[in-house]
Amino acid sequence: MTGVHRGLVAAAAVLGVAALAAGDPLPGGGGRVGAVVAAAGERVPTLGAVELARRLRDRTPGLRVADLRDSASFALFRLPGSERIDLPTLLDEAPPAGPETLVLVDEGLDAAAAWPILRAGGRDAVVLDGGVNAWITQILSPVLPAFADSALTARFAEVSDLSRYFGGEPRVAEAGEAVTTPWALADTASLESHVERLRARGGCGW
């Protein structure tokens, strides 16, 4: 075994052993809710940032956006039409299960943790997948990869319209720039179905 072989084996062993405990890759790059939920073994219903943007723009009746972050963060940046609700008063504020949708917003962790409490109280809510960061990356600054297929390009056109509506700046990546396209995942309410839809599109051209 040469020195090069020892180095390769060591690198593979370190990355492999670390992977044992690393769980799952992050869904949609910026979205951390899925990972948290997978760890807890329970599925929280999520709403993608793009779908939330569409519902906000279309003024969907019964939509309320609840921001669970502290007031300083809320003052610094807030989603259009959102209201800040403290975690302790959430149960009183949340609508009973029904057509009204309460969207929980934060960096991802607290909202996912709050959801089981709400559901135990018989209330209905969904969590914004990826929290405020998802809104910033997907709606305010979505990026189209330099080499995108036509489906992705078409999807990006829709997202760009939404982005401009909310004052964002969509752009196309430089050649060779590594980008993620979480906005392409976010057009239905369930994270699982995003993945299935993508996979069904799959098609390696064999």
Binding site: G16, L26, G202
Partner: peptide, 25 residues
Amino acid sequence: LTAMLGGFWLARVGWIDLNAVALPP
């Protein structure tokens, strides 16, 4: 091994979206 570990870790740190890579059926 290289592509599996590389793909997993790049996705794990959020640099790429593994779900957006076309999966063989």
